[in-house]
Nucleic acid binder design. Structure first.
Lengths: 363, 363
DNA sequence: TTGTATGCGTTATCAA
DNA sequence: TTGATAACGCATACAA
């Protein structure tokens, strides 16, 4: 109900009583008002100590009086480096990345850096295009989670001297990296399933041309090898790190004869899709199929059977990445560093110890 | 292998075999190589038609030969407007906003705009600080989802002529807005619960100084009024739009005597917290308490009792917001516009028709 | 149609 | 310690 606020569209014309040029003040204006040179204003702005306290005060009052705000673009042009980072990630809708970004944002903001958000959409061309834009914007540094191992490493060459820190996904190149021990995380998942009596453990893997996809699959294979579990290569399903792949792969796995008795879902979106497939097939977790995911999410404890998952210190990953980039931006020229954090296994009902076929019948 | 070059202090001069200056090429370089003036290069760059095809070709080959990339910061300084938008949101870890951002990003990238990601962290000071930075960076436009209705409206004044489009959360100011009909969405939720026989319908609301918090609460109250349901003001719990508030409020509601038989959770994080509280209390959905959430998420169909939710066209909201800002950036000076999309109710098990007390006992 | 020259707002170099 | 002045890389008014 109520009236629409649309009324009174009358005087759209320019108001002649408005000051002629609402041009934002510049250093020159500040200098004039403070009665000093622009050089002195600049010195005050940049906290250069060799300036008389009295003059500095005059400058500061002039600044507040005018409501002056230094132009970051003019400064960027002059010093040939902006206080901006580019954040290039493969998928914005994956909560892992947004949590990670939260960590990056915290330290960037504290240091006065703005963040260019670049969503590559898992597309190497979009990624390359964003990287070009980033250098065209004279960003001070780049945080990159590469869409692909091969193509993205090539793109690195075009970046000139801009510092780059990769995160989560590695590159075959001498470049900083922050992330978790993905192979270890995968091994933990599979060993845990084997410990709980599962023998046919499947894996829904991500793309082979991402280091995380490759490492988690490698960990899975290694752990299976160590435990001598059953089943052949058809238990491995490689595809994208998304819900769709999780859904379809899980459907295929459930139709296998014999089907797997457990599955390792290698990221949170794949887990989501796999759970949906299990649900639609009317299968029970873990009686018909156990599942362990990668990435612990707010919803993992709330699904029908709470999900066991390999948890990453996602926010910390973002913070460490930003700190490392910060040191590079400030001139740290040490050889490339790799900061590897540890994943942890959060055990819940989806991987509960398997009952033997006998005891199942006894129920 | 050779001697270290360090000894030869004789030749302090630049190594002649190395290119003297790995300085990125500029318009001047391109102009020199192409044998034209910088003005012509600039014209080619900006697709100004009044340039001879032959010269244009020469320029273009020079550009590719040199690997020239125009400096967006120099251009920004010159034209006093960058091809960058600022995206100011209250909470990066709320998937609603990241989905919305995906939509924004799609149209921004297509138009060659970069995005400054500004996470205000529900803090009006951080928000104000980011808005200042945005103008200091000469952004072409701002997409703002205000942390608070009152404080953020004040901040608008400092923005000068920079176009602003608000999204999701409104402001008490004549400014563009894109979002859904939040009051209607809330009404749908409550009417649905009432239709299914619930009589004591609680509400876990967001902050009163956000338009979405206020509108959803208003819709809840209005629908309750229309249906004449039971219960008093203690059925309404106001707090933050986060999981913690959802968890605590739900716990309090469950301890009420008599407790509510249904609850409306006014955003996805509150739903998460409420479900967790219900779970920990050992209550069943919907037998002990029915629940309807706001925002449909990938996990909503997978929780123990699939969640009925008011769904928003989140991605579209982002796209529409970006399109509106684009038109403003291109000079559209029409009066402020409001684009209101419609929410839809996705019905699942968490709000199934209530069984009477009698039939419940009969089970 | 093309070129010359100037300025965007800042910082850095050099003299004073 | 301070100030005049020259860039930074680009776009444009004006002249040719």
């Amino acid at each position: 109900m109520g009236a629409q606020g649309k009324g009174q569209t009358a005087a759209v014309e320019d108001n002649p009583s408005r000051p002629p040029a609402p041009r934002p003040p510049t250093v020159t204006d500040v200098a004039r008002v403070a009665g000093v040179s622009t050089a002195t204003v600049s010195r005050v702005l940049n906290d250069i100590p060799t300036v008389d306290a009295k003059l500095a005060r005059r400058v500061r009052t002039a600044i507040t009086k005018l409501g002056y705000e230094p132009s970051r673009v003019a400064r960027s042009l002059r010093v040939k480096r902006s206080r901006v980072w580019a954040l290039v990630i493969p998928e914005l809708r994956n909560p892992f990345f947004t949590d990670m970004i939260s960590g990056v944002e915290e330290v960037a903001r504290a240091a006065g850096f703005m963040l260019f958000l670049c969503n590559a959409d898992s597309d190497v061309d979009k990624e390359a295009s964003y990287l070009r834009l980033a250098v065209a914007e004279h960003v001070a540094g780049i945080i990159l989670s590469p869409a692909s191992q091969a193509a993205s490493a090539r793109a690195l060459g075009t970046l000139g001297t801009t510092p780059v820190v990769t995160v989560d996904r590695r590159l075959d190149a001498p470049v900083d990296w922050v992330g978790v021990n993905n192979r270890q995380g995968a091994e933990m998942a599979v060993h845990h399933l084997a410990d709980n009596g599962y023998r046919r453990i499947a894996c829904i893997s991500g793309p082979g041309d991402t280091s995380t996809g490759a490492a988690r699959l490698a960990g899975y294979r290694r752990a299976r090898g160590a435990r001598g579990t059953d089943g052949g290569p058809d238990l491995v399903r490689v595809g994208d790190f998304d819900e769709n792949h999780g859904f379809r792969a899980m459907g295929q796995l459930l139709r296998l004869r014999p089907p797997p008795d457990a599955v390792f879902a290698t990221n949170n979106l794949i887990s989501l899709g796999a759970l949906r497939a299990i649900d639609e097939a009317g299968a029970r977790v873990p009686e018909d199929i156990a599942i362990v995911g990668f990435d612990d999410m707010p919803w993992t404890s709330l699904v029908k059977t709470p999900l066991t998952a390999v948890a990453q210190p996602t926010y910390d990953i973002g913070r460490e990445t930003a700190r490392l980039l910060m040191s590079r931006v400030e001139g740290d020229a040490a050889p490339p560093r790799e900061i590897m954090l540890s994943p942890t296994l959060v055990v819940r009902g989806s991987s509960s110890a398997r009952r033997s076929a006998l005891s199942q019948r006894q129920r």
